[in-house]
Write a protein that binds this DNA or RNA. Structure first.
Lengths: 122, 122
DNA sequence: TAAAGTAGTAACCAAATGGTAACTAATATG
DNA sequence: CATATTAGTTACCATTTGGTTACTACTTTA
């Protein structure tokens, strides 16, 4: 993955579409963030609470990357204490049904006994 | 990801379905292997040639992991020189349409000028 | 006898990714 | 004045993942 944070994302545009897809969603958090943000707007701190075990640094980096890619929307209000709200863009919403299929597909892999306990996402 | 090669795959079955999905396909090669194997049976060496830049070690590890997960099928013939053929299982085939959607979705992200040059996969 | 061809494996190393703890700025409240 | 609150950032470190090189075993062919 090309994750040169702070600067622009520089992608190799000759790469294969699968590699490209994986560069975008093939990491530990991106698709979880998309799921948590489904149908709602959340503040940075709320995201940090809802997504179990993510560090604020990584959350911050991911959100920045996703904003650059047009997956999430960032609205910042000049208040004190600061308020920043994140939501999905159209592109982000479009990913949801695909993620659902992926979850359905992966269900059952490596699982004899299906224990569907809770987590941050459906 | 829990990739303790050689032994069994031990997954945390309480994890969220998205994390689970990403543990399976969220790496550099798995979905590329699935794509390359679409509609055909290939030998180890053919896979190594068709998949640009993959090392034989990593290919070997991935295939082993995918076999354990029931995504690929391995048929080994006791000849000399040895012949081993890999193909997709039903589970593997089922992933293809999802990957296609993912590619369609990611097309256009980070791309102003759409250069659709070749790669190992459609 | 020597080389070629296949499917790996082992030891070792490099790069990418993720995590921790401490810190900042700005203002309101007690 | 001290403290709380929020959204981060910085410097540093740990883990995970991927890559390189050399090597094996077995048999056929030159």
């Amino acid at each position: 993955m090309v994750t040169n944070m702070g600067r622009k994302l520089i992608e190799n545009h000759n790469e294969c579409p699968i590699t490209h897809s994986m560069n975008i969603i093939g990491n530990k958090w991106t698709s979880i963030i998309v799921y948590v943000l489904a149908n709602r707007k959340l503040r940075f701190g709320e995201l940090a609470i809802r997504i179990d075990k993510i560090s604020r640094k990584v959350l911050s980096n991911q959100l920045k990357e996703m904003e650059l890619r047009g997956i999430v929307n960032r609205e910042s209000y000049a208040e004190t204490p600061p308020r920043v709200e994140y939501s999905l863009t159209k592109k982000g919403e479009d990913l949801l049904p695909i993620l659902k299929q992926l979850c359905a597909w992966s269900k059952g892999i490596d699982l004899e006994s299906g224990d569907e306990s809770d987590c941050s996402t459906p």
